[in-house]
């Protein structure tokens, strides 16, 4: 899992377990293994796509990396600095280095603030600029994300969904971060608008050498923007490789099923769909052995007992599956 050059962010063994409490005494009766040992790193100017179905822990990874929630275990290293256990005040300078774009363009902007105030806020909080200078920087940010500076006076409800995401992006890049975490930033948008927002993100990446952790459940979107992709299932990364090998040569049966579900815009093309049976097991009681064995068409006796680990099956191609272990 090495990158050319030093990674902007490196996450190792990240875990987030939520206790389940019941009864009058709030006794802990179990754990939800939302994220259970996730490791990845992202280099400068690189995009790592993180995919998986709802509830697999993608957003929890994003929030833990942003230190919006406390990870149960693991380390988060931002530009060589371990930020896993920093307190609020110590974390502040590092907040400038990483920012987040949220999924819901409606709840991610305060309805009572103007778009200009929303984008200006990070500048004021970090004392980067104030007064006239902050005003000018905000106007420049609006232009960078394809909005008109005149729109600074508008309130969020006066924007369309795509424009709201642009405001969110402007807020995220206001502090010139190194890393932007997008938690399904385009999932709530129309397909045509999705493309515009993704192209904007890619342009900004080129201009500013930004690194992205791009979370999505739509593989077509991920294929377009990512350099490398990590596939998550039930709190774990099951496959992790560069984009080309993932899409041309998926190794994990789960990835295979995900890819076969991507719609192809050609009605004549007949494809072999691999439809998964059953539901995702509860993250409170992950099945023993390989978490995917309950739905895997290739499951063997071994898969039910022994949990596979993420191993390099081909150069740079990591997979967590007994069927693909080199030796």
């Amino acid at each position: 899992m090495s990158d050319a050059g030093k990674p902007i962010i490196a996450v190792t063994g990240l875990k987030k377990h939520y206790p389940v409490r019941k009864g009058l005494l709030r006794r802990t009766v179990g754990q939800v293994f939302a994220v259970d040992g996730v490791s990845f790193s992202i280099g400068e100017g690189e995009t790592l796509g993180l995919v998986g179905e709802s509830g697999c822990g993608k957003s929890t990874v994003a929030r833990a990396v942003m230190r919006l929630i406390e990870p149960t275990d693991g380390t988060i290293t931002l530009e060589g600095q371990d930020i896993t256990h920093l307190g609020k005040a110590e974390l502040r300078p590092f907040r400038r280095q990483m920012q987040m774009i949220f999924q819901d363009p409606f709840s991610s902007l305060n309805p009572r603030m103007t778009a200009g105030d929303i984008v200006r806020e990070p500048l004021l909080v970090h004392g980067v600029a104030r007064g006239r200078a902050a005003e000018e920087r905000t106007a420049a940010l609006f232009e960078q994300v394809g909005l008109r500076p005149a729109q600074m006076r508008s309130f969020p409800h006066q924007f369309s969904g795509g424009q709201r995401q642009r405001v969110s992006i402007a807020r995220a890049i206001a502090l010139d971060p190194r890393l932007i975490i997008g938690d399904e930033p385009v999932s709530a948008l129309d397909v045509s608008i999705q493309a515009q927002v993704i192209n904007l993100l890619m342009d900004l990446q080129r201009q500013k050498r930004l690194s992205y952790l791009f979370i999505a459940h739509d593989l077509a979107v991920v294929e377009h923007i990512s350099h490398r992709v990590a596939v998550m299932y039930l709190g774990k990364i099951v496959e992790y490789t560069d984009k080309t090998s993932l899409f041309l040569n998926p190794l994990h049966p789960y990835t295979e099923a995900l890819l076969s579900a991507v719609p192809v815009p050609d009605p004549r093309l007949k494809r072999r769909r691999r439809v998964l049976e059953g539901d995702v097991p509860s993250p409170m009681k992950p099945p023993p052995g390989c978490a995917f064995h309950t739905r895997c068409p290739y499951a063997e006796a071994r898969c039910r007992v022994e949990a596979p680990v993420l191993q390099e099956a081909a150069p740079g191609h990591f997979v967590s599956c007994h069927l693909h272990v080199a030796a």
């Binding site: 919006l68 907040r95 987040m100 991610s108 806020e121 990070p122 909080v125 970090h126």
Partner: peptide
Amino acid sequence: LAFVEAAQAIGMSELR
């Protein structure tokens, strides 16, 4: 709501 999370991500104090 996400805008509160966004404010936390910026590093704003709880009081603010």
